Amino acid sequence: MKPHPDPDAVGTLLRHVLDRLEADVAAVYRDQGLPEYRPRFSPVVRALEAEGPLSIRDLAAAIGVTHSAASQTAAQMARAGLVTHAADPGDHRRRLVALTPKARALLPRIAAEWEATAAAMADLDAELTVPLGGLLAEAAAALERKPLRDRMAEGR
């Protein structure tokens, strides 16, 4: 009998690891009195803090996700009162995402939790044969060079 999750089911295993990581970080935010705050918000907060208001396209590029993922995350954050969407003064066809005063007030707590998460990941990495972040970055780069679809076609 194969162990659960099946190490040959890489997608399932990745989702399992991601779910565990996100659930633990979300629990820390809940414990800190921020039940509406999601771990996926932190890259957005960090990008908007560093760059100022951004279009969804620029936000997606800044955090390394698809336009759709950035749009969905920004919408969740708007519902939580953490970002606003406003017309770009230079181009009224574009909407800019910006941090709200509520989000700005949370910046010290968000930064502290980001640092705590990074330290916890370093502790996890110390138990692994290869640091997880480095391995995932390496895998992402390899798939960018040659998608899995192409690799599968070669195997036929």
Rank of each mutant, 00 (worst) to 15 (best):
A112Q: 02
A47P: 12
R40G: 12
L13Y: 12
R57F: 05
V28T: 08
L54M: 10
R145S: 11
A111S: 09
P89K: 00
H16D: 08
A105V: 03
R93H: 12
A112S: 08
A140Q: 13
A27G: 10
P5V: 01
A86H: 12
E22R: 07
K2E: 12
S68R: 14
P108S: 06
A9Y: 10
E36G: 02
R156Q: 01
A153Q: 09
A87E: 10
G81N: 02
G155T: 11
V97S: 12
A9K: 10
A116F: 01
F41H: 14
R46G: 08
P101I: 00
V44P: 08
I63G: 01
T100H: 08
A140P: 06
G33V: 04
T117V: 10
R40E: 14
D24T: 11
A137N: 15
V25W: 09
K102V: 09
A103V: 02
V28Q: 05
D6M: 04
P108C: 04
L21D: 06
P131W: 06
R15C: 09
A69D: 11
S55A: 07
R94F: 04
S42W: 00
A9T: 01
R30T: 07
A105W: 05
M121W: 12
A137L: 15
L124D: 01
P3M: 05
A153I: 07
M77T: 07
G134K: 13
A116E: 08
E127G: 07
V25I: 15
E22A: 13
A120R: 15
Q32L: 15
L128Y: 02
A119Q: 09
G155E: 14
M77P: 09
E113Q: 13
G134H: 13
M121A: 15
P39I: 06
P101T: 03
M77E: 12
A62V: 05
A142L: 11
V83F: 10
A118H: 08
R79N: 10
L54N: 04
S42T: 04
P89Q: 00
E51V: 03
A61V: 00
L82S: 01
E115G: 02
G33H: 00
A142G: 07
A119M: 04
P39H: 04
Y29T: 04
P35C: 03
P35F: 05
H67Y: 14
L14V: 13
A61G: 02
P39D: 03
A23W: 11
A69F: 08
S68E: 14
V83N: 13
R15M: 08
L99I: 01
A61Q: 04
T12D: 14
T66A: 06
T117A: 13
A153D: 06
A80R: 01
L107D: 03
S68V: 15
P89D: 02
W114C: 02
A23E: 10
R20S: 11
D58A: 11
R151N: 05
A111N: 09
R57C: 03
A137Y: 14
R104P: 08
G133T: 13
A70I: 05
L34G: 00
R79S: 11
P53H: 05
M1N: 05
K102E: 14
G64E: 14
E51D: 15
G64N: 11
H85K: 14
W114H: 09
A87Y: 04
V44T: 15
R156L: 07
A105L: 13
A87S: 12
A111F: 00
T100N: 08
L107F: 05
D88C: 03
G90Y: 12
L34P: 00
R40L: 13
G33K: 00
A61N: 03
L18D: 06
D31T: 08
